[in-house]
Design a binder for these strands. Structure first.
Lengths: 342, 342
DNA sequence: TTTAGCACTCTTTAAGTTTAATTGCTAAAA
DNA sequence: TTTTAGCAATTAAACTTAAAGAGTGCTAAA
């Protein structure tokens, strides 16, 4: 995938990326030479840097400024050079204990996790609810709330539930409700929502005329679940305060981007939906790899968590100059905890 | 409440507040004199300004800067001087049509309204869900979802619903569920949740031992509703992008405050809970009147909306230099639409 | 192959200067 | 008595200039 770099080139590239991640200042040859890791004069290092720039791993803004990694440089660093610099134990403990403390009641888990991740990572953290559309249908229940309101309760195997409120013309007969839900549960239980949506015509197209209204509500409910995930997915966003402490947001214009990002959920939903979904494991997307003008200066690290039969996503978004290995460890760790707890 | 001001003083104060709201620049005597509204020389106006400053309606940062209203100045303006400068028709139309277009399905209404208000007001907009705790209890329904999960559905008179998921040790007998919910609904229907919470001991303390578990879940559900409203109320916040276009947020430090505000919902929940609740009508709180360090430079305009038996709040938060009359009209208008629609 | 030396570039910072806005005061005018 | 013109004083903001500092690229020597 990449041109082979000599060991010296690798060492120097790594050194530059790490320093830049740490300090946010362009890195000069003199500084690297003095740091001690490498026993070469600034002049030699300059030659290597020049080569690396030729190969498009580095760039610099003006003659008298140090070098800065390009997207390609970051990518090489992430793929080939990065330490598996797991969280230092103290951070791990903090994360663990905060996640333990969080009273993990339904739904609020995700809100809480996004807050904690934001606080610890100092990046924007995004946690999605689980994608019910992947779930296995367990049971439908219909509840008459009043003469004109009916509550549709769809539950899936892992115990997660989605409720939807419908207006109906007149209160529906209890025994009829029971009969129809019985049939639906019997015929469709155990199938995935996706499968149900695809094939409901064949499977329940035969139901008598007087069940139509109920069946339609069921189908509408499932459609709503899918539509929400596509457009209006509930996302929990944390770290919006914390990320402002990073040096890239010292000037007025750059913070607008990131605030816009968190303000307009549309963008974020789009981003989340583009992330590799099913796979377990971590995905890293750097700058231009995001294929989005607004995200040119940012990187996204993401993974998924699993609750029974469904998955959800967790992501961190921040300046490309982020501590990739730490963020990756943090996500892995968090994902594991959610998966185990629920 | 205030010292009497002469007509001349009133006119000039009003002129200054309006100009400052419009331009965000301190207002000088020369500028006012030239504007034409007042036929006096700058020197005379300076004398009046000096008096107004003496009375603490105005202040100025340095000798060579124009005057700026104090909190007291804004307050006098809002109470005594302000035009009922209703929304200009075009804005009214935009607001109306956007609120009409918004597909007003449950819950999402509030999210949508907060977005629209944010966009039009260019201030931070906050919309709370209705405070169910004020509602009249209509009906309890219990739904077995699996052997270990039970869904509690509490509905109130206006048709609003709150669902909560409970873990139970073993599936509860359907006929028993029906019996107990029957009793609860019969005895408690028509009472407010607050009343139920206050007096449930007298009213349902006698229920047999084997109903205890169910009764407890009901009580827990109501407690949860109250607790959420006190601490974790769901609020929809809009305008976070839009408010950044205002001149006060040109410099780096001031925007942090406002972002912090929207980032940490705790603060906002607190603010919302302090707002006058029941009353209809508009409340305005200016700078130091907020009794909150973080809100010293901001004003809050708020009102409530009504859905059947419950109320919710809408607020706009922005720099003290906000267009009060317009914001007030906007809130009134929005509140009326929500109240009528739902 | 590596390094020392040096001119050159460009940013950042500091200091100084000018400009423009506004006030407060005094004395004259209405 | 009220209003106004005139003017010195004050100060922020904008602009200018100068100096300092960091880093590169190139050349020639080690």
């Amino acid at each position: 995938m990449f041109v082979d770099l000599s060991n010296r080139e690798k060492t120097i590239l790594r050194c530059i990326v790490e320093d830049y991640i740490r300090t946010a200042n362009p890195v000069g040859s003199r500084y690297i030479s003095q740091k001690g890791d490498i026993n070469l004069s600034p002049a030699t290092i300059r030659n290597v840097m020049s080569d690396l720039e030729e190969l498009n791993f580095l760039t610099h803004n003006h003659t008298s400024g140090g070098r800065v990694p390009t997207d390609k440089g970051y990518r090489y660093f992430v793929n080939e050079l990065m330490d598996d610099d797991l969280l230092i134990p103290s951070e791990k403990e903090i994360l663990q204990s905060q996640l333990d403390d969080a009273d993990l009641a339904n739904d609020e888990v995700f809100k809480e996790v996004s807050k904690i991740l934001g606080r610890l990572s100092k990046e924007i953290s995004i946690v999605s609810q689980p994608y019910l559309s992947q779930g296995i249908f367990e049971k439908l229940e219909l509840v008459n709330l009043s003469s004109s309101k009916l509550l549709v309760v769809v539950s899936i195997q892992s115990g997660l539930v989605r409720t939807l409120l419908f207006d109906v013309e007149s209160e529906l007969n209890r025994s009829k409700l029971d009969r129809v839900t019985g049939i639906l549960n019997q015929r469709l239980g155990g199938l995935s929502l996706t499968e149900i949506r695809r094939s409901f015509h064949e499977r329940i197209g035969d139901l008598q005329h007087d069940s139509k209204e109920i069946v339609k509500m069921f189908i509408d409910s499932i459609d709503k679940i899918f539509q929400d995930e596509k457009e209006g997915m509930t996302l929990y966003i944390g770290g919006t305060t914390e990320i402002l402490s990073q040096p890239e947001f010292d000037d007025t214009s750059s913070y607008r981007n990131i605030i816009e990002l968190t303000g307009e959920k549309g963008i974020v939903v789009h981003v989340m939906n583009k992330l590799p979904a099913g796979e377990s494991g971590i995905s890293v997307s750097i700058g231009s790899e995001n294929n989005d003008e607004k995200l040119l200066d940012y990187s996204i690290v993401s993974t998924s968590y699993t609750i029974g039969d469904v998955k959800g996503k967790i992501a961190l978004i921040g300046p490309k100059r982020m501590n990739y290995s730490k963020m990756i460890s943090m996500l892995n760790f968090t994902s594991r905890i959610i998966t185990e707890k629920l």
